[in-house]
Amino acid sequence: MRYIWLIGLCATAALAEQPILFPHNKHMALGLECLDCHSTADTRAAAGMPSVRKCMLCHEKLATDRPGVKQVRDYAARKLEIPWIRVYGFSPSALVKFRHAPHYRANIDCTTCHGEVAKATVAEATVTHNMGTCLSCHRQKKATEDCVACHY
């Protein structure tokens, strides 16, 4: 048990340190939408993280003098992906299979589960994800409450 606690502690410490302090708020203020970068949230299980190439579609030309953008361009020049640190996600022991697509199609707003990421500077887990939050929403929307809809 002690080791599990230690791993948890390391994971929490790591969460604070993203490789690039990506400002969601600045990108959203420019009129981008969540799906522009997390482009498979409407069709697939995973919402998806944008590749460096996608960042470079804009940052080849735009805002090239900013320190954060310079870091992105550095990754792109070295042909490396940015090792983003996961903010949300279920632990493997939860045995949950979450799919974004059906939630998107049911018109659940991204902020329901991800909070005001659009206004955040660096992405942080602000909404608790546990079975209580899932089930209360499923009950309100009269969605399935069958265990095997998520746990298999």
């Binding site: 493997p92 045995l95 059906p102 095997v148 298999y152």
Partner: peptide, 27 residues
């Protein structure tokens, strides 16, 4: 899922495939 030690398991009729087909059809 990777089942942990100490639990029972059995055939699920590949419920993951059933779920996927149902969601695809609904979409």
């Amino acid at each position: 899922a990777i089942r942990p030690g100490g639990v029972m398991e059995k055939c699920t009729f590949c419920v993951q495939r059933i779920e996927r087909v149902k969601l695809d059809a609904k979409a």
